[in-house]
Simulated scan of single mutants.
Amino acid sequence: MTMDTRIRDVRGLETRPLFDMAIDLEAPLNIGGPLGHRALFGAARGTFEGPKLRGEVLPGGGDWALFRTDATMNLDVRITLRVDDGAQVYMSYSGRWTTPPELRPEMGDSATRHLVDPDRYYFRTAPMFETGAPNYRWLNDIVCVGFGYFIDGGVAYRVFEVL
């Protein structure tokens, strides 16, 4: 098969750190449903910090997670960030958390899942932002990727801007 001549050799993905974020989660609200098990993990509070912005995750958002029958979780997260100068930023992201079968007993225990090495499971996100704050409008025009992992009481992410 011949390669389509319209395909160009473009550079690969490059990223730079945007921020690290930790979110404390409320106890899940188990909803159920026909597509798998739906649960809401409310964001109780949190923090984020990076080279260009830092602040807090406000209560009231959360993850409307869907635990699929194949043991992958689809994330549907919406939260509000308050930057340390008072500006507010809406952050939403989808993603996937996939746990290999041999790790499921360890990851199923909320008291100890944060002790499992994040390199042993797949937890990736695609954050997007919206804000009207003049100093942060640049966030409206970027694409990001995030690497998630569990911490005591919640989740954490390393978020990178795709260049």
Rank of each mutant, 00 (worst) to 15 (best):
A39H: 11
L40D: 08
G42H: 14
A43I: 05
R45C: 09
T47P: 00
T47Q: 09
E49F: 07
G50M: 04
P51T: 10
K52G: 06
G55S: 06
G55Y: 04
E56I: 07
V57Q: 00
V57M: 03
A65L: 11
A65K: 03
L66G: 05
F67N: 10
M73H: 04
M73I: 13
N74P: 01
I79Q: 06
R82G: 08
V83I: 15
A87L: 10
V89L: 07
Y93A: 07
S94V: 14
G95K: 12
G95Y: 08
T98L: 15
T99V: 15
T99R: 04
P100T: 14
E102Y: 11
S110Q: 13
A111L: 10
T112L: 09
R113Y: 14
D117L: 07
P118H: 13
P118A: 14
D119W: 08
D119Q: 15
Y121H: 10
Y121I: 08
Y122C: 08
F123L: 13
F123A: 09
R124T: 12
R124S: 06
P127A: 08
P127Q: 11
M128R: 09
M128Q: 15
G132K: 09
G132Q: 09
G132A: 12
A133D: 04
P134H: 05
N135R: 13
Y136R: 05
R137W: 08
R137I: 05
W138T: 02
L139S: 01
L139A: 01
L139N: 01
N140K: 03
C144Q: 04
V145C: 04
G146Y: 00
Y149F: 07
I151P: 00
G154R: 02
G154H: 00
V155D: 01
V155W: 01
